[in-house]
């Protein structure tokens, strides 16, 4: 699980162009949206694509993303349970 969390942080930084940020700057329970990392709605769509592309998870209802993308912890837990690749 720790390896997956590290991988998620690296992917987030690269795919969402989080300039001047390193995986060490993101705590596992940091809020990704709102007052946390400050991600926006386009970032949310990008995360949905990332789940599909990297882990074979298709979110049919984008509203599901609200809970899944709350933090690195919640993302890792959901991916571990639902991944097909």
């Amino acid at each position: 699980m720790d390896a997956l969390k590290q991988e998620l942080k690296e992917n987030l930084i690269e795919q969402l162009n989080l300039e001047d940020m390193s995986p060490e700057d993101i705590a596992n329970d940091d809020m990704l949206f709102g007052d946390g990392l400050g991600l926006d709605s386009i970032d949310a769509l990008e995360l949905i694509v990332m789940l599909d592309k990297n882990y074979g998870i298709k979110l049919t209802d984008p509203k599901e993303g609200r809970a899944i993308f709350e933090s690195i912890n919640t993302m890792a837990a959901y991916i571990s349970e639902h991944r097909s690749k």
Binding site: L16, I42, D43, L45, E46, V49, K53
Partner: peptide, 9 residues
């Protein structure tokens, strides 16, 4: 087929 929303906008 993985279009990027961040590119598309």
């Amino acid at each position: 087929y993985f279009p990027s929303p961040a590119v598309f906008v």
